[in-house]
């Protein structure tokens, strides 16, 4: 039963992807390949680009900045979230700032980021963290605050030490929410890094995307879009599956 459910979910995803490709091909026929390259042309161009050293440098730069940002945003978010969820005084200070950060278009903060980090890798990492961290803080703090009080009582009556309670009750109790927050962080950090590369970087997929838009290089634009779509989609699906298993 479990196996059948898993297969059906994969088939559902494949069906959606197939529908998107068909739609893409139909639009391509309608507007012409000069305006919108076909799926086949895009895949062929992707293979060509992946073989080029310059593209590999851009891909690697984005991957590197993304991994660093993701680690900083998720680890920092969990740490601040635990402090915020555990102590009301800290939460009163942290939560409004995080909510404002989520609501503010981050591009507005770019001059400030540049002022602190200058042009280059640190700025786009900071931009990635700025996108990914606030949701993790909010979700972790909420998870901690919504832990059932009965677990604390049960731990007391089982005479658990503080360390055992934290390690074997608190962490497992909030783990599903941590996975969910990591999923959000995974997507938003990628967005932040790409936006950072678009505005103030000489390397990376974001930078290449901006250059391609300027040169009206449709095949490269679609190639980058395709790579990001596949990466984000696959990552999100894997995390969603993992998230469901933890509940």
């Amino acid at each position: 039963m479990m196996k059948r459910g898993w297969i059906w979910r994969v088939l559902d995803v494949l069906l959606v992807c197939l529908a998107l490709v068909v739609f893409w091909q139909v639009v391509c026929w309608a507007v012409g390949t000069q305006v919108l390259p076909s799926p086949f042309q895009t895949i062929r161009h992707t293979v060509v680009l992946l073989g080029r050293a310059r593209f590999q440098i851009d891909l690697l730069a984005t991957a590197q900045a993304y991994v660093i940002s993701l680690v900083l945003a998720s680890a920092g978010g969990i740490l601040i979230g635990i402090l915020s969820g555990g102590w009301r005084g800290i939460n009163d200070q942290v939560e409004p700032v995080m909510l404002v950060l989520i609501a503010t278009p981050k591009v507005m903060l770019y001059p400030i980021i540049l002022l602190f980090f200058g042009l280059g890798e640190p700025a786009k990492v900071a931009f990635g963290v700025l996108h990914g961290l606030p949701p993790v803080v909010i979700m972790t703090a909420n998870a901690l605050r919504s832990i059932r009080p009965i677990y604390r009582k049960a731990a007391l009556t089982l005479r658990l030490s503080g360390r055992v309670y934290a390690q074997h009750v608190l962490v497992p109790a909030i783990f599903p929410e941590l996975v969910a927050s990591f999923r959000v962080c995974f997507a938003l950090t990628l967005l932040g890094v790409l936006v950072g590369e678009m505005f103030a970087s000489s390397r990376g997929l974001g930078h290449l995307l901006m250059a391609s838009i300027g040169a009206n290089d449709q095949p490269t634009i679609l190639t980058i879009t395709l790579i990001l779509f596949v990466f984000a989609g696959a990552g999100s699906s894997i995390l969603l599956m993992f998230s469901r298993r933890t509940k």
Binding site: I150, Y151, K153, T157, L158, V164, P172, A173, T246
Partner: peptide
Amino acid sequence: EGIGVVFQEDASFPWLSVWDNVAFGLRYR
């Protein structure tokens, strides 16, 4: 030591199996 409490609310840990739930208190003693 020597007092055991059962609450009205379900206090089992959903991330553990029945066996692990029952063994929980003993494991850390």
